[in-house]
Design a protein around this nucleic acid. Structure first.
Lengths: 349, 349
DNA sequence: GGGATTTTTGGTAGCGCAACCAAAATCTGA
DNA sequence: TCAGATTTTGGTTGCGCTACCAAAAATCCC
């Protein structure tokens, strides 16, 4: 007696599901067994050329689309990599994502994108949901997460790369740059050029802790060196040129001593330069302006903007490459990579 | 004799797969049947409060993460919606994606993002792969695809929304704006302001057919009205401020008659304005400059940029909403939505 | 209070594919 | 020419979950 006869008995689809073409349909049409079709598609070199041709033709003819879920369930493998970022409105993340996308797509993987809107609870929820897809690895922005997010990812036993900032403590692997050092370097530059009252302008810094790190780096450096002071201005808006546009006037009115402004990003800084231009405020004569990120537009405004260039696409590529090498069993050369940054001293300071 | 007894026989994991906590584990630990756990998670209202509490506690305790693939395979339903766009470097798509993301996440769906890099073959491949996830619907940028892409999507029998441009022929549903009309409206504006030699500056227009449509709309309008002429300038670069920065000088040198320039997007137009500023070229005195998209920065440069504002986030939201309503069985009010656009006439023209 | 509902729980089967093992076909060398 | 090695093909089983159906328990109504 054949215990599996029940499952071989012909039947119509169990539920109202759409009756898509399945691997068995292709097999039947091509006159081979299902497993041969599976092989022809996944490991073509193990199937004779004749059958391969016939099978490919049948696949084409029937418009067969493999059910990835069934495949993933059977093989306990997916080629979908979740990428969790705080925001898509920020160009910076988009460029990192591009780097990731290029790299993983070239390796035959797909990207499942989740955005947390800077909310750590949402991040935890997202991580949990995305792990349900049994991904081969996870890419996660930032090093600060809820304890349960970290636990979840550690328990899941998948490679994880945390990208954006470089730091000592990571779940698994880490690629990024030190924002504290970037802040310090900018402070050093501004002090060197003789500015003595340096403002930092940021938005929603409770959420954007990387901006906070830059401010911290700057503040500490100024304190260490002495002879100058810093002041923080925070706006509750989303980061954008408008913030810089308004901030320039606000700040100079609120604290006329300020002779240099370090903005949390280039967009705000560009907004400030444009405002200065319109209102005839001399940059850097009246106030120096610096940004962060090294967006192309920073070089185009007049005066050209001093900024710190971060290798965003590179971060994405490195993160993806690291993850892929771990997925493929090759341990990456290093578990933590500091991609560094470059200070672009231009005429706005 | 029980034909399925074979599958009930206890066994160790078949392969070297990682032995994650499964629904059955939770059921055993909570002392209920697996199906009850499934219900407690998916349709909590159908399970008594006592059991629900016990099950949730067990889920928590064991760190159970449902295997979405198994669920999807069994129910023939996923909550993952593929979104296919030509590019992520373009802010415009990112904003549309944000609108989509917000809307579908609120409805409990996930976004699977694919980018085609303006390659229709890649688009077809991507569509095929993504359909393998048996998605409840598909969001696709643009109305122009390879025949096989359209066939694939039609055969898949899932709701599809094509977004970005509005047009007569769509696979299923469509949200966007008419780029041809936008071009014509801008032409009308420039003619009305007295410009007579109007240049259009675009990049990679073989791929970016929406920019081409705007040019076409402009060209035809100018031809219809008479008394003015147009000229096309095309750059092989990626679209960005640098293009406008260089184009302004190039164009004026190549064709000194040109008295107005309509750029394919705001970024290029802003680049041109910044260049004009640096080089002391009067805008709009020597040459008028107009952009497209209505990015925030267009209002901040001096002179403020005339542009056409497109409701990008709105397009994303509408597209997602339409798709969701179809997924939920409610046919959307309309199958095609023209979201329109607004000409922002500012001082650069 | 007893039958008819309604609510809550469980059993069974199978979604579509790939891993594992076995069998068949082909090739190799003396 | 034939045993043994190699390549190519097929059968069976189960991945973890939910649809469907049925049974049990709780509630209702006159």
């Amino acid at each position: 007696m054949d215990p599996s006869s029940a499952s071989l008995r012909p039947r119509e689809p169990r539920r109202g599901r759409r009756t898509a073409v399945t691997l068995s349909d292709v097999a039947a049409a091509a006159g081979v067994s299902p497993i041969t079709v599976s092989r022809a598609l996944n490991t073509p070199e193990t199937v004779s050329e004749v059958l391969r041709g016939r099978i490919n033709a049948t696949v084409e003819a029937l418009g067969y689309v493999p059910n990835r879920m069934a495949g993933a369930l059977a093989s306990a493998k997916t080629r979908v990599i979740p990428v969790i970022v705080p925001s898509l409105s920020n160009v910076v993340f988009v460029e990192v994502i591009e780097g990731i996308q290029e790299t993983i797509e070239a390796a035959g993987y797909q990207m499942l994108l989740g955005s947390t809107d800077y909310d750590l609870d949402r991040e935890a929820a997202l991580a949990s949901t995305l792990l349900g897809w049994a991904p081969p690895g996870v890419l996660l922005a930032g090093l600060r997460h809820l304890p349960r997010t970290a636990t979840l990812l550690k328990n899941a036993d998948v490679p994880v790369v945390e990208f954006m900032e470089y730091g000592a403590r990571c779940i698994d692997m880490n690629v990024g740059l030190s924002h504290v050092r970037a802040g310090a370097v900018m402070a050093a530059h501004l002090l060197e050029r003789g500015y003595r009252r340096i403002g930092f302008v940021g938005t929603r810094m409770r959420d954007d802790y990387r901006a906070r790190q830059r401010y911290e780096g700057m503040r500490r450096h100024i304190a260490e060196v002495g002879g100058a002071s810093d002041i923080l201005f925070e706006y509750p808006w989303g980061p954008g040129q408008e913030v810089g546009w308004h901030a320039l006037a606000d700040v100079l009115a609120a604290d006329p001593q300020v002779d240099a402004l370090f903005f949390a990003n280039d967009e705000m800084a560009v907004g400030a330069v444009l405002r200065a231009q319109r209102d005839g405020i001399a940059v850097p004569g009246r106030v120096a302006v610096a940004g962060f990120n090294g967006l192309p537009m920073s070089a185009l405004v007049t005066p050209a903007l001093t900024t710190i260039t971060s290798p965003r696409k590179e971060i994405g590529k490195q993160a993806a490459t690291m993850l892929l090498s771990r997925i493929n069993g090759t341990p990456p050369v290093q578990r933590r990579i500091d991609v560094g940054f470059v200070l672009e001293a231009r005429s706005s300071t």
